[in-house]
Computed example of a mutant assay.
Amino acid sequence: MRNTARRAATLALMATAVCGPLTGTAHAAPSGLYAPSALVLTVGHGDSAATATPARAVTLTCAPTSSGTHPAAASACAELRAVDGDLDALESVLGSRGDVLCTKEYDPVVVTVDGVWRGQRVSYERTFANECVKGSLGSSLFTF
């Protein structure tokens, strides 16, 4: 049941992020030649996205400009551009913050990213041991 509700919420947010800019008056010419880059990011507490209790979801649009409900949209888009949308490479490129010391308490936090990056479908899930470990990544992408 949780999984169904999570997917419904993710799909609703994604539809709003992708289709929202399409509403309104029609323009004679396109505003740019950018491939779509619209993502929905979620964070929840649990071992996996299927079993996690959703805590928060934000939208992030990176083309033609940085926007969405993400609190640091510009820097999150810059980080995505630095890894060309490869979320698995995020830690190796940005590194971890060395000034953060985390406990070994296991209170899993799962982050998901679903949507489109430069015209390509993106689906990403990562589970961190706890909120501190997630914050030590040194990325503003997952800070919401």
Score class of each variant (00 low, 15 high):
Arg2Asp: 04
Thr4Phe: 03
Thr4Asp: 05
Arg6Trp: 05
Ala9Pro: 09
Leu11Tyr: 04
Leu11Arg: 02
Leu13Gly: 11
Ala15Met: 12
Ala15Trp: 05
Ala15Arg: 14
Thr16Asn: 01
Val18Thr: 12
Cys19Leu: 14
Cys19Ile: 07
Thr23Glu: 15
Thr23Pro: 14
Thr23Gln: 13
Gly24Cys: 14
Gly24Gln: 14
Ala26Trp: 15
Ser31Gly: 15
Ala38Lys: 08
Val40Ala: 12
Val40Arg: 00
Leu41Phe: 09
Gly44Val: 05
Gly46Pro: 06
Ser48Tyr: 00
Ser48Val: 04
Ala52Thr: 01
Pro54Asp: 10
Ala55Gly: 02
Ala55Thr: 08
Val58Met: 06
Leu60Ile: 01
Thr61Phe: 09
Cys62Phe: 11
Ala63Arg: 11
Ala63Thr: 15
Ser66Tyr: 15
Gly68Thr: 13
His70Ile: 13
Ala73Ser: 11
Ala73Ile: 03
Ala74Arg: 07
Ala74Gln: 13
Cys77Lys: 02
Ala78Lys: 07
Val83Arg: 02
Leu87Cys: 07
Asp88Gly: 08
Ala89Ile: 05
Ala89Leu: 14
Leu90Lys: 03
Gly95Cys: 10
Gly95Trp: 08
Gly98Pro: 06
Gly98Met: 02
Asp99Asn: 12
Tyr106Asp: 11
Asp107His: 02
Val109Trp: 03
Val109Phe: 01
Asp114Trp: 04
Gly115Leu: 00
Trp117Asn: 04
Arg118Ser: 09
Gly119Leu: 00
Gln120Pro: 09
Ala129Met: 10
Asn130Lys: 08
Glu131Lys: 06
Cys132Ile: 00
Gly138Val: 09
Ser140Lys: 12
Thr143Asn: 12
